[in-house]
Simulated scan of single mutants.
Amino acid sequence: MYKTIFLILISTSVLKAQVNEPIEVEEEKSKAGITRQFTPSVGFVQSGFRDFATSPLYYQGPGLHLGLGWYWEGAKWENGFEANLNLAFTQSKAPNSEYFQTGHSAVFINSQIYNSYLRKIDNWSFRDYTFKVGGTFISDFNTRINTSLQNATGGFEALANLMLAGKVEKDISRTQSKEFGFWFLKRTLNPAKRKLSFQLNAGLLNFNWRPGYSYVLDSEINGSDSKLTEYFFASHSWSLNGWRLGSRLEYSVIRPSGNGMKFSYVWDAAHAPGKFENFQMASHSIRYTLIVNSSKK
């Protein structure tokens, strides 16, 4: 009896090893073919917003963009993840008046999580052009500080958008060394992988976390039972409405080592009605991204 069980276990393990060996080898080959990159970024942003819960005025102004990113790419797919911070100093846009002050300033802080997954469409790709489709998830938390609003100085909202994404890439790689000369400056341009891409994101499911009416801090205080977060966000609730659109125009240069850089123009706009009052925001940013090859050798 025991010998029979022992023989069955031995034969089963041998068959399992023989069946799994090609699968494991194929997985190792697949992992070896994946490009992995660390992509920190820095840049300038022009932000604008309007929140009818506090003021009908438009606020616009310049600011700074900082970001950390990771990128993975296989033969048929790509996945990009970013954690971004945009800090802008905005001014209200209102007609001049001789009777009362109309110009006010506000600090706009936007923290964002961005994740995009795309797959290559072979039937649409031709020559040096590659088409990809997939989805993008964007989550924002905004903080606005405007002392001129007095007891509504602080403004907070969150956005969560699941978006349909499409991307087209043009391969413009330099395959041979090229001599470059301008007056007394001469330089040899080595071969490099270069591509120009454009991605468009359109919101499918648009969630927003907005206040019930305004940001006036008049929540109930009940001794030790009242928590700080509940006091600030007591009137906030989630809604499924509005829209969001975004686009990215990128130019990438990658050297034979796998390291490189990328220049991007990123546009984003959102409209969030919430339960009562609308919130609108838009941003234009120019970013420089450092591409660090982190693939296993």
Rank of each mutant, 00 (worst) to 15 (best):
F6A: 13
I10F: 14
L15N: 08
L15G: 03
A17R: 09
V19M: 10
E21S: 13
I23V: 15
E24W: 06
E24L: 14
E26S: 15
E28W: 08
K29G: 11
S30V: 02
I34H: 03
T35G: 01
S41Q: 09
V42E: 04
G43K: 04
Q46D: 12
R50W: 02
F52P: 03
F52S: 05
F52T: 09
A53W: 02
A53M: 03
Y58C: 01
Y58E: 10
G63P: 07
G63L: 08
L66K: 02
L68Q: 01
W70R: 07
Y71F: 15
E73A: 15
W77S: 10
E78T: 11
G80Q: 11
A83D: 07
L87N: 00
A88Y: 02
A88L: 02
T90E: 07
K93T: 10
A94N: 08
N96F: 13
E98G: 04
Y99C: 05
F100W: 02
G103R: 14
H104A: 12
H104P: 03
S105A: 09
S105P: 02
A106V: 01
I109F: 13
N110A: 00
S111W: 04
Y117R: 12
L118R: 04
D122G: 04
S125W: 12
T130M: 09
V133R: 09
G135M: 10
F137E: 05
D140W: 10
N142C: 05
N146G: 07
L149P: 02
Q150P: 03
T153R: 15
N161G: 00
N161L: 01
M163F: 07
G166L: 01
V168M: 13
D171A: 08
D171R: 03
T175S: 06
Q176V: 00
K178R: 09
K178Q: 08
E179R: 12
L185Q: 08
T188D: 08
K193A: 04
S197H: 00
N201T: 08
L204E: 00
L204K: 03
Y215T: 00
D218R: 06
E220I: 11
N222G: 07
S224K: 11
E230V: 00
F232L: 15
F232C: 06
F232P: 03
F233A: 05
F233S: 02
A234G: 07
W238A: 06
G242N: 10
L245Q: 04
V253S: 12
R255D: 12
P256K: 13
G258H: 13
F263A: 13
F263N: 04
A270D: 12
A272Q: 15
P273M: 09
N278I: 02
F279C: 05
Q280P: 03
M281V: 10
A282K: 03
S283R: 06
S283G: 09
I286A: 14
R287P: 00
Y288M: 14
Y288P: 01
V292P: 05
S294Y: 09
S295E: 00
K296T: 13
K297V: 12
